[in-house]
Design a protein around this nucleic acid. Structure first.
Lengths: 155, 155
DNA sequence: TATTGTTATACTCTATAACTATA
DNA sequence: TATAGTTATAGAGTATAACAATA
């Protein structure tokens, strides 16, 4: 196998592993009672600072009207609050409530639970995976998912 | 790091790598013009034999009425055909057309394209990943995705 | 005049139940 | 009577366009 074939095979195995966990993810989403979009939004929110609706809509790549709807869903559950920005009264920033932070932490933790089949891997196997994938730029992020940081100039 | 922590870290990196490819998957789906369900169905179909709607509905875990709808979408695009089973005239089996097989092959091939960032990994890195993940039960499947093979007794 | 967010509206997807045709 | 698939219908989610408030 040349390198390209090896890369393809490694990637295929990554996909298969994730595919197998599909049920776990779906169960997580369903027991949360949140729709997939709101769950993604919850995970995306920055616990350390408010983020404007517009920035969030760009992060999640949805229309502004959909963001209104998603935030409504989280607000109903008291996981977030809308705050009018004092600098620009058109802007509304979304902040996680205490309840929202707890929910975010809980979901991330469960999301990151490795599948049971990982128990069959040796420490060396796991080190091999971690060493390789740790080199990818995606791994360099300090946090978890790509949290929507507010852009420098606004909010 | 103990083994459990290592497993969690390896899994986290897997998720991050997949997450990064999200855009590629979404672009693929969107340029196909198929909805996610029909795309999944297309991938799930067995190119070598017809599979009953019921079996497919179980594979994809959707209601029979949804399967009717998904198959309608693929049929509109002439990617599949419905054939009444000669043994049991209640049963309709779905077969890929030539066009459908080509589409399936094309999507699988693009789906399995490793991300550009994999170029930064060494052959040893890739071997490490493939060796480890190759041990998982999900990897044992000969084909690609969990293709819905018709169950022994029927069809 | 441009931008942020909301509302009105319509369309797509998904789920349940009632129906048909076969067995 | 039970099963395979469809149709009817309603609901959730998503997108577009028109709108109000603010810049």
């Amino acid at each position: 196998m040349n390198k390209a074939e090896l890369a393809r095979e490694a990637w295929r195995l990554l996909i298969e592993a994730m595919f197998e966990r599909q049920g776990h993810f779906m169960a997580l989403a369903s027991e949360s009672g949140l729709n997939p979009g709101s769950l993604k939004l919850l995970i995306t929110l920055d616990p350390s600072q408010p983020v404007s609706m517009r920035t969030l809509a760009r992060s999640i790549r949805c229309d502004a009207s959909v963001m209104t709807w998603l935030v409504d869903r989280l607000e109903e559950r008291e996981m977030v609050e809308r705050r009018v920005s004092p600098r620009d009264r058109r802007v509304k920033a979304v902040v996680l409530t205490k309840k929202g932070m707890e929910a975010q932490e809980m979901f991330m933790s469960r999301l990151l639970e490795p599948p049971p089949s990982f128990a069959s891997l040796t420490v060396d196997d796991l080190k091999g995976v971690a060493k390789a994938l740790g080199k990818l730029p995606a791994a360099r992020r300090p946090g978890l998912m790509p949290v929507a940081r507010a852009r420098p100039k606004r909010e």
